[in-house]
Every structure is written in structure tokens, then in C-alpha cells.
């Protein structure tokens, strides 16, 4: 559906995108995650034809966005992070105006507007002025507007920012409904728990490069694997440390109070073996578990936030 290859974009001397590669399959609900300034919005603006890349290609359904960006605009619907409204335009006029921007007029446009306003739950507000709607309603209207030409790919840049929890939930349900109807959706958001609940695939961008990507299931497994193994012992810390240092799957060891946190590369069988070793050495282990993985922890790991208070040892590979 969407393929981005070696995408580069520079603002002055600052590289916003540095060889970004990304593939999204048809029907996917793709979560696009990254810290501020990572290049998400730049990527999205290139996707929807608002910016031209310096290098690289974007193809949607095999059509090169760089060469045929007018054609691409017919395939993509865009919901920006912050969007404006027109004063003195009613909801149905707003929809009909954007319909005419895609060459839809007359009865076809009116039917399409009615259907979309109904789907967005705004049909009863069709005669309201747009600026009289609440923020949540405006966001739903913006989503309905982005669907006016029945695009194959819907691109949303932090669409739920500034919404209250109820509006956010309603918006999320609407997005999921669209995905179930077969729309391919790319959504950028900082609300990672929300993305984890609804996305089928996810990509993490950092400093203009894709640092992690794949299906949500794969990513969560990798998150779990990359999470530290936490061992709480009562006394006998030296014995425990000696065993841990000699174990081939242990990479780093951190100690915070009685809790030993180790980065452990082994699978669940290796974990069981390590626990057995500790028990055999009569180390009083009170807790032994993998830290629960989520997108937030992955995000923090990628954006390199370290706990400075933790005492940390590097384990030599030959030990």
C-alpha cells in the first residue's frame, strides 16, 4: 500500500529525515511513534504532498508521490494535528466545499457528505456554524472531511491531542470502525497506550530514521525481551551477584535497594535455569520476574532516558 524508501529532508542544516524506510500493508492500522522533532510530521507532510523530499521515494499503490503528487492526493486523506476552521461556514457547507476540492459536486457530493456526517455523528449539527462546534466535534468533522473522497490511505497526525477522555474514546472507536471497513490508516500519536490498544502495526522513528517497526505482536514480544529481569533477594547479595556475573545471558546488572535488575538475553527456559541456579546456591529469592513491557517503556528506552540513581555494572562477555 505505502512504501517509503531512503526518505531525506533537511531544514537549513538540520536533517529532519535521514534515510527513512517504511512499509505499510493494505488494511493496516499503523501507529507512527517518535519523540518531538523525530520527523513524524515531516514524513506525514511529504506523504500528503505538502512538502517535497530532498531524496528518496514515496509510493502509494505503486504511484510515485514525487512525480504524481496530484494523483496521490486523491488516494490520501489527511487529518492534521492542529487545523483551522472557516468562519461563516456551516457544517454542510464546509463538507461540500472540501467535496468540491476533490471535484465532487451536486447530488453525489451531498449524499457523500450526509453519509459521512452521519458516521461522524454530526448529521444533526449540519446547519451549525463550524466554529460553534466543540473541539471533539470539530475533530470528528475534520476526520469526515478527510474521508470525503473515499481515500485508500488515511493519514492522521496526532488527531486526539487536546481532546477530553470521552471525545478521545469516541474518536478512537471511529478510527477503529474505519479500519474495520478496510481503510489503511497511519496514525501518529503520543498517547502510546491508545496506539497499543488499536494499532495492528507500529513504527518508531528517532532522529529521522526508523529504529523499530513491525506488527504490534512482534514489537510487544521484543519489548518483553528487552525488558530487564527483576530479582529481589533477602541477603546473600554477593552469592547472587557471583552467579549472575558468570551467566552467559546476563549483559548488565543494576542494583537498587534489594532489587537486582539485569538485562537478560535468554528466553523463558534460560530464565528458569537461572532461577534454579540461584535456588541451588541457597540464595533466598523472594521475587523473580520480567518487568512488564509496554510501548511507553519501549519509547523511553529508545529515547534513552536512564535512571541515574541506579548503580550499574557492565558484565564482561568472557565472565
Amino acid at each position: 500500500m505505502l512504501k517509503i524508501e531512503n526518505l531525506k529532508k533537511t531544514y537549513g542544516k538540520h536533517p529532519a529525515l535521514d534515510g527513512l524506510n517504511l512499509t505499510i500493508e493494505k488494511g493496516a492500522l499503523f501507529g507512527f511513534v517518535g519523540p518531538n522533532g523525530a520527523g513524524k510530521t515531516t514524513t506525514i507532510k511529504i506523504l500528503v504532498g505538502l512538502l517535497a523530499p530532498d531524496e528518496g521515494t514515496v509510493t502509494i499503490n505503486g504511484i510515485d508521490a514525487g512525480r504524481e503528487y496530484q494523483k496521490i492526493k486523491g488516494l490520501v486523506g489527511y487529518v492534521p494535528d492542529s487545523f483551522g476552521i472557516y468562519d461563516n461556514l456551516k457544517v454542510w457547507e464546509y463538507m461540500e466545499f472540501f467535496a468540491s476540492c476533490y471535484g465532487l459536486d451536486g447530488l453525489v457530493a451531498r449524499r457523500r457528505c450526509t453519509a459521512l456526517l452521519e458516521q461522524a455523528g454530526l448529521l444533526d449539527r449540519a446547519d451549525f456554524f463550524v466554529d460553534a462546534l466543540s473541539r471533539g466535534m470539530q475533530q470528528r468533522l475534520c476526520l469526515a472531511r478527510a474521508l470525503i473522497h473515499d481515500p485508500e490511505l488515511l493519514v492522521m497526525d496526532e488527531p486526539s491531542s487536546g481532546l477530553d477522555p470521552r471525545s478521545r474514546t469516541e474518536f478512537k472507536e471511529l478510527v477503529q470502525e474505519l479500519n474495520e471497513q478496510g481503510k489503511t490508516i497511519l496514525i501518529s500519536s503520543h498517547v502510546l497506550s491508545e496506539l497499543a490498544q488499536m494499532c495492528t502495526d507500529i513504527g518508531v522513528i528517532e532522529q529521522g530514521r526508523m529504529v523499530m517497526g513491525g506488527s504490534m505482536k512482534e514489537i510487544m514480544e521484543r519489548v518483553d525481551q528487552s525488558n530487564p529481569l527483576l530479582i529481589v533477594v533477602r541477603g546473600s547479595l554477593d552469592r547472587a551477584m557471583a552467579i549472575l556475573r558468570s551467566h552467559s545471558c546476563v549483559r548488565t546488572i543494576s542494583i537498587k535497594n534489594d532489587c537486582i535488575s539485569i538485562s537478560f538475553t535468554g528466553d523463558s527456559q534460560d530464565e528458569a535455569q537461572l532461577l534454579q541456579q540461584l535456588v541451588d546456591a541457597e540464595v533466598p529469592v523472594t521475587r523473580f520476574y520480567r518487568q512488564q513491557g509496554n510501548l511507553e517503556s519501549l519509547f523511553m528506552e529508545i529515547t534513552d532516558h536512564e535512571d541515574k540513581e541506579v548503580l550499574q555494572y557492565e558484565v564482561k562477555p568472557d565472565l
Binding site: 507532510k45 492526493k73 489527511y78 492534521p80 483551522g84 472540501f98 476540492c101 476533490y102 472531511r145 473522497h149
Partner: peptide
């Protein structure tokens, strides 16, 4: 004015040239 109202990007993301 369209740029200040943040409506220009919406316009240019459509098939309007």
C-alpha cells in the same frame, strides 16, 4: 490568512492546485 487560520495545509492536501 489561510496559513494563520491553519486551513492552508488542509486546502493544499486536497486536489486543489
Amino acid at each position: 490568512g489561510e496559513r494563520e487560520r491553519q486551513t492552508l495545509d488542509l486546502l493544499l492536501s486536497t486536489q486543489v492546485t
